[in-house]
């Protein structure tokens, strides 16, 4: 009897919890759904009623955004820059992390400190000088220049996460590998990389998301319309006088969709990736 009463009371106490959960779900998901509906409606329809359901559904807007506007260019620029930069920073970063985690050598701590101090550098401290440096090197307003900057500015985080993980791989494995006559590169390639794969995957997702969304470096270091990445391309659209809300919404969806698609399949990996730096 007493337990039943307590249960009923507990149930009642849960009501505010459930209400809050529902409310926050609406707040966190609502804006996204709103943009999704707008991406399938024309601007005229949106201005008539901003919160209507798409009817008819204008799927063709995605094709229009892709072909008539420059979204396809922006998309491929983003894809190229991000894929190349993530690949490079992963390879370079895991090599350095492996070296720092495995080998004892004079200057180890110094190199570690040097690289990891990059974690607290505000981008504003770099951006103006990077602008000048890329000019000097003739890499200003090139995707190559942006890739280099992305790699350089994301090494610190990558090494930080990987080094921590690599250091936890039992030393016995390496001793055994050494006994088996593995060279230093084979040890890196055949021991560290396979065992460290989860951590590497984590940094890949983290870097992918951050770079796919990056804005400040891109806005300063690129000027040509043909070289813009997606975030810049979308900004370019909103700068317009006759704000074409419907088209911008479609553009937003094009920018979000790759992330959402990957998230649908790899949500755990992405959550782990994004929070890796904080949890460790």
């Amino acid at each position: 009897m007493a337990t039943q009463m307590r249960l009923g009371f507990a149930q009642l106490r849960r009501l505010p919890l459930v209400l809050f959960v529902v409310l926050y779900s609406v707040v966190s998901g609502g804006p996204f759904l709103w943009v999704a509906t707008m991406s399938l409606r024309t601007t005229a329809e949106i201005f008539k009623n901003p919160y209507g359901v798409p009817s008819p559904v204008h799927w063709e807007k995605f094709a229009d955004a892709w072909t008539k506007s420059n979204y396809s260019t922006y998309f491929w620029n983003s894809a190229t820059v991000v894929v190349v930069a993530v690949a490079l920073v992963t390879v370079i970063g895991s090599m350095a992390a492996h070296c720092l985690a495995r080998y004892r050598f004079r200057g180890n701590r110094f190199v570690r400190f040097l690289i990891l101090s990059g974690l607290v550098l505000p981008p504003q401290l770099l951006i103006l000088a990077l602008f000048q440096i890329l000019l000097d090197l003739d890499l200003y307003n090139t995707l190559t220049g942006l890739v280099i900057v992305y790699v350089a500015t994301h090494i610190a985080m990558t090494v930080y996460i990987l080094e921590g993980f690599f250091a936890q791989i039992p030393q016995d494995l390496f001793d055994a590998a050494r006994m088996d006559g593995y060279s230093d590169f084979e040890i890196f390639w055949r021991v560290t990389m396979p065992i460290g794969a989860p951590a590497i995957f984590t940094t890949v997702t983290l870097n992918f998301i951050i770079l796919w969304n990056e804005f400040l470096f891109a806005v300063v270091l690129l000027t040509d319309d043909a070289k813009r990445t997606l975030p810049l391309g979308i900004m370019h659209f909103t700068g317009s006088h006759q704000l074409d809300v419907g088209m911008v919404a479609t553009g937003l969806m094009i920018a979000i969709l790759p992330i959402i698609l990957i998230y649908a399949f790899f949500s755990e990996a992405m959550i782990k990736g994004m929070t890796a730096g904080a949890v460790r």
């Binding site: 966190s28 998901g29 996204f32 998301i209 796919w212 969304n213 990056e214 804005f215 975030p231 979308i234 900004m235 920018a255 979000i256 992330i259 959402i260 998230y263 992405m270 994004m274």
Partner: peptide, 8 residues
């Protein structure tokens, strides 16, 4: 999900 969205 909002964490994954860009600032833009």
């Amino acid at each position: 999900t909002p964490v994954l969205m860009s600032y833009v």
